[in-house]
Write a protein that binds this DNA or RNA. Structure first.
Length: 566
RNA sequence: UGUCCGAUGGUGUAACUGGCAACACAAAUGAUUCUGGAUCAUUAGAGUCUAGGUUCGACCCCUAGUCGGACAACCA
């Protein structure tokens, strides 16, 4: 597929609030005008469209201000993390079109340094080893409106703390018996400042450091310092970390290291889907979808398999903007972005999703004509292809009505339509199954003088249909995807229900479509527009004998609307 | 009876930082079309959460409310 000519940045767009902050910093000479961002995922799940927003933001900002972006895995919890996720995340970021060059880091790279930082805090009497259980710590933390109680271990001597912390590291204590805590303020109105846990004992194998450590830093103790070590200038993260910021600033100040500036933005929500890693994992594990890359998933790999392009997702991220208020973006905007992209780059093909037979009574029995059709009306350079035409065709069952309303522009008894790139035909009669009344054959006559390109073909007819020659058609599997949930906001649950009660039972329909022979050239992940029906992408499960197409998105259809109005 | 954050058409984001509320999606109408797609033109829809205040002038500044969100993992 060709490279994009998408105007990814509307030339004179006004600045978003993050750009304003950055430009102000540049004006004030903060960090000598340097801009350095990072994308810091935890490798415990697959990336989704919400992460794409963050990735586009971080890499986009760095690009705009001639800076750099690091990829850093926040891998401080070995029990939840896995290399499978590390690999998928790198693949997805690359696929989106971003490059961290040689700046691939892991929080685990800094474990030794982080340990030293902890010792520094102990020496300053700003941290202590606490022997309380998790339950006790939780009980003594207080509530948002009531202060907590100080730990009885809070006033241990520096020497005792140093010794105990070293022995924690040496593996002398079982999991859960002790933690290292910051010594801040158990009465702080900010819960995160109430002597938070810095290190816990975890005799677990880490995907990178192996069995080298049996104590691991908490995210809060690792994240800000990791940014500092990497000399990140602007740490962009989501809103829920806003209340953590005072803690991060406290660490940086007490340890005395380089201070990044954290800026929080509102995470992306989208209608008819869920975005939390926990829920997505549940959908996968409980078999509601076929995997992380199920084309109905809002994951990057799901969207990729569905047939979305990186350009369309980047353009989407640009279009939704960024702010601090909670938001829920209409999926139709995402759909618009992929249609806009695919309209210009996808070649057209004629495919009949729900075939009904058409017999051209006055067309010679044995004749096959090779007719030409344009591959992409938006792009002359894509050229033309040949389509076989013969006496028996398939058209879409929807394109015929025995007793049509006035607004129906398609085929009906006595009416004429154009077959795209072929002839104008008229319906003469229909054949039905006697018991069911189901139409089995539509008999038509064609006007030989109306073949596309001939003078008589300019005759005005109301409708143009797509078609395939029955004996030349190729059967392919088509997976028709629809939204995963029936409710706009599946997180908005009624009494006694869960988000899973709103799953759409019709989110996947598998059918066999009849397609013109040119489809045989289709390659995996190639995108096509099936004329008049939608955009389709060749699924990776395809074989030479059995092509499989995923419907990316249907074409806009103003007929269904007119039809519904009735 | 806490701290922090937020509030602008149906949705999202703007408003030269105090000067006639704009853009995109969605919607509607018409033109055009060998895709009821695309394209083009047009229309409708908010007076900016509320109440006060400052000001010649407030979406923007101040005060007090209201509503919504985040925070009480040895998760991130």
């Amino acid at each position: 597929m060709e490279e994009p000519k998408l105007p990814e940045e509307k030339a004179l767009r006004s600045l978003n609030f993050i750009e304003e902050i950055i430009e102000e910093d540049i004006r004030n000479g903060v960090n000598e005008g340097r801009v350095h961002t990072r994308f810091p995922p935890e490798p415990n799940g697959y990336l989704h469209i919400g992460h794409a927003k963050s990735i586009c933001l971080n890499f986009g900002l760095a690009k705009k201000y001639n800076g750099m972006t690091n990829l850093r895995f926040d891998d401080t919890n070995p029990v939840k993390e896995d290399v499978e996720y590390v690999d998928s995340i790198m693949e997805d970021v690359k696929w989106l079109g971003f490059d961290w060059e040689d700046r691939l880091y892991y929080a685990s790279d800094y474990f030794e340094q982080l340990y030293e930082y902890a010792v520094t805090l102990i020496r300053k009497e700003r941290a202590y080893v606490c022997d309380m259980s998790a339950e006790e710590i939780s009980e003594t933390r207080g509530t948002p409106t009531r202060p907590g109680k100080e730990s009885p271990y809070r006033n241990r001597t520096v020497g005792e703390n140093i010794d105990l912390f070293a022995r924690m590291r040496n593996g002398e204590f079982p999991d859960g018996t002790r933690v290292l805590r910051a010594r801040i303020d158990m009465a702080s109105p900010n819960m995160h400042m109430r002597d938070p846990v810095l290190y816990r004992i975890l005799h677990a194998h880490h995907h990178r450091t192996g069995d080298q450590w049996c104590i691991y830093p908490m995210y809060d103790f690792a994240h800000g310092q990791s940014d500092s070590i990497e000399r990140i200038t602007h740490s962009i993260c989501t809103l829920e970390f806003e209340v953590h910021r005072p803690l991060y600033d406290w660490f940086i100040r007490e340890i005395g290291i380089y201070p990044p500036r954290q800026i929080e933005f509102a995470r992306l929500n989208m209608t008819y889907t869920v975005m939390s890693k926990r829920k997505l994992l549940e959908l996968v594990q409980q078999g509601f979808v076929s995997g992380w890359d199920d084309p109905r998933m809002p994951t990057i790999c799901g969207l990729r398999r569905r047939g979305f392009t990186p350009e369309s997702i980047r353009n989407f991220a640009e279009t939704i903007g960024v702010a601090k208020r909670d938001n829920i973006i209409d999926v139709s905007l995402l759909e618009f972005c992929i249609r806009e992209d695919l309209n210009r780059r996808a070649n057209r093909l004629m495919a009949i999703l729900d075939p009904v037979k058409v017999v051209i009574d006055n067309y010679p029995e044995e004749l096959t004509e090779e007719l030409e059709s344009v591959n992409n009306p938006e792009d002359e350079s894509r050229g033309k292809r040949k389509m076989p035409f013969s006496k028996t065709l398939f058209i879409e069952r929807d394109d015929f009505m025995e007793d049509p309303p006035n607004k129906f522009f398609r085929l009906a008894p006595g009416r004429e339509v154009r077959l795209k790139a072929a002839y104008i035909i008229r319906c003469e009669s229909v054949v039905k199954e006697p018991e069911t009344g189901r139409i089995t054959e539509i008999h038509c006559t064609y006007d030989p003088m109306t073949r596309s390109g001939m003078p008589d073909s300019n005759r005005k007819v109301k409708g143009t249909l797509h078609w395939v020659s029955a004996k030349h058609a190729v059967g392919v599997e088509v997976r028709l995807y629809d939204r995963l949930f029936v409710k706009e906001n599946p997180d908005d649950i009624e009494e006694g229900k869960t988000y899973k009660d709103y799953l759409n039972p019709d989110s996947l329909k598998v059918i066999t479509a009849m397609v013109e022979p040119a489809v045989k050239n289709a390659q995996v992940s190639e995108k096509y527009q099936f004329e008049r029906t939608g955009y389709f992408s060749v699924d990776k499960d395809s074989t030479a004998q059995n092509l499989i197409f995923n419907r990316v998105v249907p074409l806009k259809d103003s007929w269904v609307k007119t039809e519904k109005v009735k």
